[in-house]
Design a protein around this nucleic acid. Structure first.
Lengths: 229, 229
DNA sequence: GCGCATTTTCAACATTTCGTAACATACCCG
DNA sequence: CGGGTATGTTACGAAATGTTGAAAATGCGC
């Protein structure tokens, strides 16, 4: 199934080059040259991923990203930011706005494609209806329900958000700070150790079904969600 | 070590401009104005990368690329295509004659150099994503995971940093002092022999998969990471 | 305001990692 | 061949890091 990729970029040469590369990789490019066009395209075509230039005429890419992540229907669309070198990409700002990855210009088209695939893969198991799967685990975000096999699991709100984040961001380490940003929201101050406790809780819920193996500790760095040990 | 870059381009002004930029970037340009000259240059000088104009007098760049990828000795030389904007790029779609990247004319030499470097890096086992490969070894820096074949290897934080450094700095000796600087960070005081111990630990992890051969001792100097003994 | 579910903090406990030192082995050169 | 130096190997205690249970704090509906 062809993935639709929205390209929000004001320079037409870059837009064209990326569109070219996307087609070659069997994806469907949707070009947009500013935030207005982007928003319209999102509403009408619902892309699977958004490529967002950091600097845009009118509204900055970051601002647009923030707006998008505010809208619940859109927030699960992953975003990759395109930034010019040295264009101080404050990583934290990006994380707050729900940006999934960065690519620094100038980039090779192959690298860009690889990153796009990586991000799409990470949010895989998402069949478009908000059904996420990993191992025996199934998370139905529409119904807000989690199952392991036929077992229904009861999660607290935070546990649920944490698991949901992990299932849409697999095979990647996240530090405690990053998890706090993403799962708790950037504007709360809580001890980093709190993350450990919730990890523990989540594991405890998953333990009876052996799905706790999906949540892995990366010593010295943070935690990771992955099917491979 | 200087990289040899073959420039196949009929317009001499572009050839010269690119050659100039390449020299400035410490690479060695090999100019060729048509397919015949290109093939001869490939046979005699074996370039590390080929810049190929889309439109050439006689044989088109695409046709040349196809021929090259047919030859097993040549097929792993990466190719970057130079195309004019709108030069029926869509036709490239399934063709895919082993082209690694392409740059749309007019391009800035700075961008071109950046792309060249990216492609060269990739051919050294760095896919630009933080996926590093060497032999059977694969290090995924996003997931913070190391595999040898399908085997997952467990590394301590320092072992991981050390391996990561080596995989991004191959074929070069580093003294213990340099390794301490780069891997431990300049502001720590530890005995140089500590490096030996960590090398030993890393080797031990790699031993079962025979990948310890990648870490080589250079007596009197330090250590080196290389695929060739 | 009260009771309940949830979240956060805290601190004891368990495990891993690290640097050092001591000993073993390999290599070089006269 | 033998001494001297460089590197390999191992063991051990201290320090860093992760885990865990329980208590304290918070927030929410009634």
């Amino acid at each position: 199934m062809q993935k639709r990729i929205l390209i929000v970029e004001d320079e037409s040469s870059i837009r064209e080059m990326v569109a070219f590369a996307l087609r070659k990789a069997d994806m469907e490019p949707i070009p947009a040259e500013d935030a207005r066009a982007a928003q319209q395209a999102i509403a009408t075509r619902r892309p699977d991923l958004i490529l967002l230039d950091w600097m845009l005429p009118g509204m900055s890419g970051l601002e647009l990203a923030r707006r998008l992540s505010r809208d619940h229907l859109i927030r699960d669309i992953p975003i990759i930011m395109l930034t010019a070198r040295g264009e101080e990409m404050d990583r934290v700002n990006g994380l707050e706005a729900g940006v999934d990855d960065y690519v620094v210009k100038p980039f090779s088209t192959r690298e860009l494609i690889a990153r796009i695939k990586a991000v799409l893969r990470r949010s895989q198991g998402d069949d478009g209806n908000g059904m996420l799967e990993a191992g025996e685990l199934r998370l139905d975000s529409a119904a807000h329900r989690v199952q392991a096999g036929s077992e229904v699991l009861i999660l607290s709100p935070t546990e649920y958000r944490l698991l949901h984040f992990f299932m849409t961001h697999r095979d990647r380490v996240y530090s405690r700070a990053q998890l706090l940003d993403q799962v708790w929201g950037g504007s709360v101050y809580v001890d980093e150790r709190t993350v450990d406790v919730h990890i523990r809780r989540l594991r405890k819920v998953l333990e009876p079904t052996h799905m706790d193996r999906l949540i892995q500790t990366v010593r010295g760095t943070g935690y990771r969600f992955s099917e491979t040990p």
